[in-house]
């Protein structure tokens, strides 16, 4: 990380700090860097910034670094951090909020972070279409968009043999109602 001028960063991104606090509903300013979140995080090994660093970066208004970080996507939302935080900051929810903001700002995730976003989109597109998750469609779309064409390919045959692979989607009668949920949210928020 480069040297940063804290006064400038905080002044420049005051709005962002406030926005995170309001949108996540979390008292991020209370964090005193005890590091308990990071100590218990099962996926910290794959992150570019650890959970406690993310909260500190929020306090310091480091918007750009945060929105393009891998951490906010690789977080598994297991809430170990949220459960243990002595300041009652739901860190996992802050991560989610940052992820949503990154999507809204058009910040394109890269590498492992991109794979997470691709999976989200693949899953949600099957839900928007059929009303339920369609596992085969999800994997196919996931592989096409991530460029990992044979990801999970070895799963196909054994899954099929065990009767765990349904080759056609089950569409709910109210699929149009589910599609409406997506379009209404888009109207209210823009994006999704």
């Amino acid at each position: 990380m480069e040297l940063i001028n804290l006064n400038q960063s905080i002044a420049k991104n005051a709005h962002f700090i406030e926005e995170i606090g309001i949108e996540s509903g979390q008292p991020v300013q209370k964090c005193y860097q005890c590091g308990k979140c990071t100590a218990g995080c099962p996926v910290a090994f794959a992150m570019d910034y650890t959970p406690n660093q993310v909260i500190r970066m929020v306090q310091l208004g480091m918007k750009e670094d945060l929105l393009k970080s891998k951490t906010i996507w690789i977080c598994a939302s297991c809430s170990t951090c949220s459960t243990r935080c002595p300041c009652n900051v739901e860190i996992a929810h802050v991560m989610e909020t940052l992820r949503i903001m990154a999507g809204r700002s058009g910040t394109a995730p890269a590498g492992k972070a991109k794979y997470v976003e691709v999976m989200y989109n693949a899953l949600l597109s099957t839900v928007e279409k059929y009303g339920r998750t369609y596992e085969v469609g999800l994997v196919l779309q996931n592989n096409l968009k991530s460029g990992k064409l044979f990801n999970g390919a070895e799963m196909g045959l054994p899954m099929f043999q065990k009767g765990k692979l349904k080759l056609s989607p089950s569409k709910v009668k109210g699929a149009a109602e589910v599609a409406r949920i997506f379009s209404e949210v888009r109207k209210m928020e823009g994006g999704v």
Binding site: I100, Y120, L124
Partner: peptide, 12 residues
């Protein structure tokens, strides 16, 4: 919506 909607939109 599990486990994708939480990363896209609070409302969704």
């Amino acid at each position: 919506g599990a486990t994708a909607a939480h990363g896209k939109s609070h409302l969704l």
